[in-house]
Design a protein around this nucleic acid. Sequence first.
DNA 1: AAGCAATCCAACCGCCTGATT
DNA 2: GAATCAGGCGGTTGGATTGCT
Length: 354
Amino acid sequence: MGRSPCCDKVGLKKGPWTPEEDQKLLAYIEEHGHGSWRALPAKAGLQRCGKSCRLRWTNYLRPDIKRGKFSLQEEQTIIQLHALLGNRWSAIATHLSKRTDNEIKNYWNTHLKKRLTKMGIDPVTHKPKNDALLSSSDSVHSKTASNLSHMAQWESARLEAEARLVRESKIRSHNSLLQNNHNHLKAWNINLESPTSTLSYNENVPSIMSSEGIGEKNINNDNEKNNNNNNNNVNDDENNVVVSMIEFVGTNSSSMVKEEGGDDQENWKSYESFTSNLHHELTMSMDQGDVIAEEGFTNLLLKTNSEDLSLSESGGESNNGGSGSGSEFYEDNNNYWNSILNLVNSSPSHSPMF
DNA sequence: AAGCAATCCAACCGCCTGATT
DNA sequence: GAATCAGGCGGTTGGATTGCT
């Protein structure tokens, strides 16, 4: 079976958008919202398929898009999130306000991937590729791998906690529905009932890390009035996600630390510090009844690394010393991410390294 | 200035998932 | 349960731009 292509109609235009087309699309969406993308082109007077319109809007015309050069912080975030999430661009994009997944993907493919490759780091695994390097610095590599492993472990734990909350919320929402079958609750419940897909932790529970929040992203754009009605319910769910994460962090981080051997004490100090920070921030956020903002969570995720980075930067001397290879490089850094960013930072684009 | 190569990035394509019929 | 629809995602392409010789 299989579905027919959305753009198989003859007469539909492809290729670059003209300013006139942009104007039509913008004007229509500003006045009516996008509604059904499939129906939009006809209503807006465009000879395009809905998919093309959606792409143009989300990747280019949307007013909240930031364009232009990526900042160091953004690069750092992309690299780190990529190590944790892989090529899940939309998931990564949720942590970078105002950047589209397409833009991030392009930037990764054209800039960051090459930089890592030239540095001898596998952009897929984020581990040093050089066998010689590995053999000459097994213990250091072990730490590096351990760091990555721990971060991935943490991310998995986070996903698991969120998935658990989705399940719990599903049950709660279902019960609420039995008592109060308002339309807005129904819409909320529909989203909660979505099984967790490979991307679901971001798609279904974006509120703790996205300023868009559940109300805006999971409930259709034209449901603004419903969003207002939902605020209390949504905040409850957000707080429960936070509570669950706190519980999860509290119960799992300590046991995870205990499992580690003494070799990775340093790594785990920073990891423990990270989870501790996270625990604290989550608690504070909950006490204040706040939703954790997108950048807030991302910053938490990156906190220890960023601080280390700024310290090393203030030290003035680059760790790579222009060579960018060899075990010394890694020995001087307890943190893999520091190493990457120091290199990226201190190496001019025209240097032999790049 | 011309020709070629490398790079960039907007847009397309195919596939997947969840919802609906 | 099957078929179909709608939206979203990641991979890829190809035209435009930039850099180099």
